[in-house]
Amino acid sequence: MTRPRLISLLGSYGVVLALLLLVLFGWARYDYFLGFFNITSVLRYNSMFALVALGMCFVIMTGGIDLSVGSTAALGSVVAALASPQGAWIGLGAGVGAGLCVGLINAILVTRLKIMPFVATLAMMLAASGTALLLADNQSVSVSYESGFTSIGQDNFLGFPIPAWIAIMAYVVGWIVVNFTSTGRGVLAVGGNEDATRLMGLPADRIKFLVYLASGGLAGLAGVILASQFGAGQPIEGVGWELFAIAAVVVGGTLLTGGVGSVGATLAGVLLLGILFNVLNFENGKGWISLSAYWQSVIRGLFLLVVVILQAKLSSRGSVAVRDY
């Protein structure tokens, strides 16, 4: 294997490798780390972030950004909670629908009105957050426990948390879309060189429209799980989710400038950041050290920097992760 080839493989699978090392470390150090309870609770909690990060991954692959996902999830959770007395499915649909609405507005702002994604989604971040607070009257909205709505976030299916199933299905669909549909390849092409993509005759605007719509929908879905898991719509939750999602996407090797990205590596990025958090909790539990949540943020931030610096080094050598099919 040639050296550049090796580096490029490291670029693609580095995040998976880091994830494995972290899991091994946790398994060796903590008694209950790979216990059923810990695994399912990590997955249950992180599936929301996984969904948001999946949408973010698509947006970033086109070279854009979606800052509104956190507020959209909060709005989704409030709308789902308000609709939950009508039935579990209606609550689910309402939450996702709210997310799609935000996504639709983002899509129109970016592709029709040609507003920079950063600005357009920043505006929608504020607007969605405000709407959520208005609808919830500035407090959390209790969900209906009779309609079965809470099953979505709290129950298991085949011994596995339902939110984790939802996230896995979303990632499988996302992976197929990126690797085996022309729209998916178009997503990467638009991010790689938008002008060339247009000259090649691909519907660049339609592709961008779809990714913002999808990102909104997935954020809405994450909001539904949030409401269901905690038994209440949370208008002030979701703050900083967009940053967590961006971090996970970047850790997964997706270039912020677009054109290069991987759905699988994004999932690994989410798990890596999630399990890092989990490991720090275990470490606190051991009593040797006591890290506050603030320190955990600092550690995550440093970790993100290391990854981004490594990424820049790799891509400056002309080898970035390109293939995942």
């Binding site: 790689g192 090649m200 005759g201 270039l255 054109g259």
Partner: peptide, 27 residues
């Protein structure tokens, strides 16, 4: 050259008229 540098040669040649099998891309 108006191509997409990050993407493979195949994609740069075939983008816009991809081969399909069962509705999915036939790499």
């Amino acid at each position: 050259i108006n191509l997409v540098p990050y993407r493979s040669i195949t994609e740069n040649i075939c983008l816009g008229r991809e081969a399909r099998r069962y509705g999915l891309l036939d790499w």
